[in-house]
Amino acid sequence: MAQIDPKKAVVGWREMVSLPDLSGHRIPAKIDTGARTSSLHATDIERFDRDGHRWIRFQLDVGGGQSEAVTVEVPHADRRTVTSSNGEAQERYVIKTDLQIGSERFAAEFSLADRSDMKFPILIGRTALRRRFLVNSGRSYLQSSAEERQRILK
């Protein structure tokens, strides 16, 4: 039987996370070990050139009742075929940016997709979680402050 690593932080099935290089907001995220790739809710995605390099501009939904989306511009990372939760293969842009869950800050890849039909604007997949976190599927917001948890769970 596998040993549980006590040095790893434990996350619940949903957490408030930050994307410090993209926005100052705390954003609700679903933790999904069934998904390989993490995903961001992005709309109005466009590719453009800046100083001879490819960039991506999009509207980031910060969720949590925020009134407006945040316009984000990042260097273009990649374009890949990703299989969505309904089994459909989609060509998506993939960006790399810092993700902060609790006190852990690290680089993670996110596919950009319209998640307007989903409850959470961010999905954190197993590649981002691997070797960093354990998941307690019966709990929520384990990496949020007591004040934030109290406000969210009201």
Rank of each mutant, 00 (worst) to 15 (best):
V11D: 02
A89R: 15
D21I: 01
F48T: 09
G125A: 07
E104A: 09
H25N: 09
A108E: 06
K96S: 14
T127L: 12
I31C: 02
D21H: 02
D98R: 15
R139D: 12
I27G: 03
A128L: 07
E104Y: 06
V17G: 02
S111E: 05
S111V: 09
D117V: 10
V74L: 15
T33D: 00
E109D: 13
R105P: 02
R131C: 09
E104H: 11
Q100K: 15
R26H: 03
A113K: 01
M16I: 13
R151E: 13
L129Y: 04
S18C: 13
F133N: 00
L142S: 07
Y93G: 03
Q66E: 14
I152L: 10
V135T: 12
A69S: 14
D51F: 08
D32R: 09
T71V: 14
A9L: 10
N86D: 15
D114K: 06
L142G: 03
T33N: 10
M16C: 06
L134I: 13
T37R: 07
H76C: 12
A108N: 02
Y93M: 09
Q90Y: 06
I101W: 00
V74I: 15
D98T: 11
S23F: 02
M1R: 11
R149H: 14
K96L: 03
R126Q: 12
R126E: 09
